[in-house]
Design a protein around this nucleic acid. Structure first.
Lengths: 182, 182
DNA sequence: ACATATCTACCTATTGATAGATAGATATCA
DNA sequence: TGATATCTATCTATCAATAGGTAGATATGT
């Protein structure tokens, strides 16, 4: 039996990934779960608390998925492919962009602690990719390439959602990996 | 003397590019311009009308800028560089992401006509880049590469804003063009 | 006199948030 | 064991603030 708090977070993540932080209300989430909006404040005193919990859960889940997908990868090409697949899963399974992609766009309108948590997700993304790239490459180049990869995947999620065509993501990701020639 | 409607659109574009569609109110825009919120409805009966006007103006301005920047470009490399520069300007001059990048992320929470206008901006972006790429390349490959380029630039705007570091955009764009080897 | 632009005043709906109550489970201790 | 106390999860009711939007008066300039 799923706990109320989990149902609330599921509803909130789904809504925020579709419409953004400011377009999600406590009442809507309460209705989704079948409780009153005041009860949502029992779990998340303020909206920012909910946002933080969501980003932390999302980030943990993302890196857990990434570990699974990259477990048997050894070459840089395989590791980057695993990273792209983890992003792809976010789009295909949920038909939504990345939670942090949405909140990252809204950065300037978010409470500071929340936008910081989102930035940390991206830092961790870039770090992971940077370490996956060929060891011989200069670290500043690896960093730039990692930023390029994360940017491309985030942008591709947004673009595919706006154009309502998942293939846009697949083509952009494929074109990127072909260019990279790892 | 700048017209009220232009001041309103400037304030609205700035606010929406920072915080998103739903975090912008008529009252706030009215205050910025020094009129009452009811008067905003004189120019934009509904919020959707404002959003549409903003996207149309933004798109027109973007392609006008792009024409200027690409006027003397002939090689694919120069044309793509002009495209990247036009994106870069959006970030550097205004310290904000692209209006359509923000609204594209919020697609599922927007009135249909508005999300359609945003998608048309991206279609036009992809078309332009596709035509700028080397003529010899197969058109399906050009399309995929164009989607990759637009995705990378949009993602890089978001990433640089979230990480509060413009150099992230520059490095990602540079890494992309180096990979492309046009 | 007319069109343009802005105002005052208001409406209804919704927002995030709080106060205080309650029923039932759980822990503590004589 | 039984009484007392505390905790968990929810409720009802309400708040001040803000949202988008409207009607109708008023000013301004041709």
């Amino acid at each position: 039996m799923t706990e109320t708090v989990d149902l609330l977070m599921d509803a909130a993540e789904s809504a925020m990934r579709q419409r953004g932080y400011h377009a999600v209300s406590f009442r809507e989430l309460a209705d989704d779960v079948g409780i009153k909006s005041a009860s949502v404040h029992y779990y998340f005193p303020q909206k920012e608390d909910l946002g933080l919990a969501l980003v932390r859960r999302y980030s943990a889940q993302f890196f857990a998925d990434l570990e699974v997908r990259s477990a048997r990868a050894v070459t840089p090409a395989d590791l980057i492919a695993a990273f792209c697949d983890t992003y792809r899963q976010a789009l295909i399974q949920a038909d939504k962009i990345c939670l942090c992609g949405m909140l990252g766009a809204e950065t300037c309108g978010l409470p500071l602690e929340l936008s910081t948590a989102v930035a940390e997700f991206f830092d961790a993304n870039i770090d992971w990719v940077s370490k996956a790239l060929p060891k011989g490459t200069k670290s500043s180049v690896r960093r730039a390439k990692a930023e390029q990869i994360v940017a491309t995947l985030q942008g591709a999620l947004m673009l595919a959602t706006s154009l309502r065509n998942h293939k846009v993501f697949d083509r952009a990701a494929k074109a990127m990996t072909l260019d990279m020639a790892l």
